[in-house]
Simulated assay, not measured.
Amino acid sequence: MEYVILAVVIAVIAVGAVAGLVVTGRRRKELPPKPAEPATLAPPTPREPQVGDEAAPPREAPVQTVEEVQLPVAAPEIEAPEPTAGRLVRLRSRLSRSQNALGKGLLTLLSRDRLDEDTWEEIEETLLTADIGVAPTQELVDRLRTRVKVLGTRTPAELRTLLAEELVALIGTEADRSLHTAKHEDGRPAVVLVVGVNGVGKTTTSGKLGRVLVADGRKVVLGAADTFRAAAADQLQTWGERVGARTVRGPEGGDPASVAFDAVKEGIAEGADTVLIDTAGRLHTKTGLMDELGKVKRVVEKHGPVDEVLLVLDATTGQNGLVQARVFAEVVDITGIVLTKLDGTAKGGIVVQVQRELGVPVKLIGLGEGADDLAPFEPAAFVDALIGD
């Protein structure tokens, strides 16, 4: 019996020993292998500063002088306007589209086999419809009658030459159509005033005229004396920046005469060749505004005489444009006419009539909306486009 109890005890002890070995082995397998060398820990990621954190000690930033600081330069690209020489010839197609009806209509009537009184009346009506005016029309018809009788034969080429010669003579070739924009001998710049009523494209014409002057090699200063419309001053400044011309402007609603005076003063200081002053659009029915235009001219003349006073007229307004011209001529001495929108009307005869009314020549004509669509007026080139091929 004692042997049996001893055997049981030994068996229990043996089973416990085996179980302990198994558990120990399992635990050893679950433990990770011991690293050969301790791992290097990465520095902690800096967190965003929070409210209540202590400020870090100030760091000294490098100090730059005014000369060392690089400022962004955003100068506008300077454009090179088209040369004015031959510009009217280049724009001939725009002129002929609207004016061709007049020239071709006259040639058709003159080419009839029999030029009776009814035909001559039709010729007169055609000329009057084109706004040439009563007196110039009668002069032209009388000369055409005489020359056709003397000519005898009337081939198309002969008629075209005859009509061209008479139209050029009617427009006139003796007048001085040059722009007086050269610097004076004493170094004072030439001064050009641009005047006209609202709606004729006066500020746009002033900007285009600035391009004409730059294309002719002039150094130009622009004066934005239309202080009643901030948009007009902005527009003129944009035109100037495109060709590198400086614009002098004043506060909105300021004194136009003061701006004009400052523009000439600036032109003298900069050694400019020409100062171009864009005045406000004056309604010819407003006596006070017209008086103000006279004041602008008088104030500018404190620097010296005004070289050009250019009246801008809309060619499409016809007789109303002539009324405007007469009133402006009473206030300031007009030296030349700028006819705009001549490509949009068949009334090219206004060139003749406005010259007769004012006794001053048409010096520039506008033939489109492009930047270089303002051209010096050349009678022969104008008539050539008028008649066509």
Rank of each mutant, 00 (worst) to 15 (best):
V8R: 05
R28P: 01
K34H: 04
T40E: 09
T45F: 03
P46A: 12
E48M: 12
V51A: 15
P57D: 08
E60A: 09
P62C: 02
V66N: 03
E68Q: 15
P72N: 00
I78H: 02
V89F: 06
V89I: 13
R114C: 03
T119Q: 08
W120K: 03
E121H: 10
E124P: 04
E125V: 09
E125G: 07
D131Q: 10
A135V: 11
A135I: 06
R145V: 06
R147G: 01
T155Q: 06
L159P: 03
A164G: 14
E165N: 13
L170A: 07
I171R: 05
H184F: 04
P189Q: 04
P189F: 07
V191H: 02
V194M: 10
G196E: 01
N198S: 01
K202G: 00
K208P: 00
G217P: 02
G217I: 01
D226G: 01
F228A: 03
R229Y: 04
A230R: 06
D234Y: 02
V243L: 02
R246A: 04
D255G: 08
D273Q: 09
L276D: 12
I277S: 12
G281H: 03
T287G: 07
T287P: 00
M290A: 06
V296T: 07
K297E: 15
V299K: 15
L310V: 13
L313V: 15
D314M: 11
Q319R: 04
G321R: 13
V327H: 03
V331I: 15
I334M: 09
K341V: 11
K341M: 09
L342Y: 14
L342K: 14
T345V: 12
G348T: 09
G348C: 07
Q353Y: 06
V354L: 08
V362E: 04
K363Y: 10
I365K: 06
G366H: 11
L367F: 09
L374W: 05
A375W: 10
P376W: 07
P376G: 10
A380T: 14
L386T: 10
L386A: 07
D389S: 11
D389Q: 11
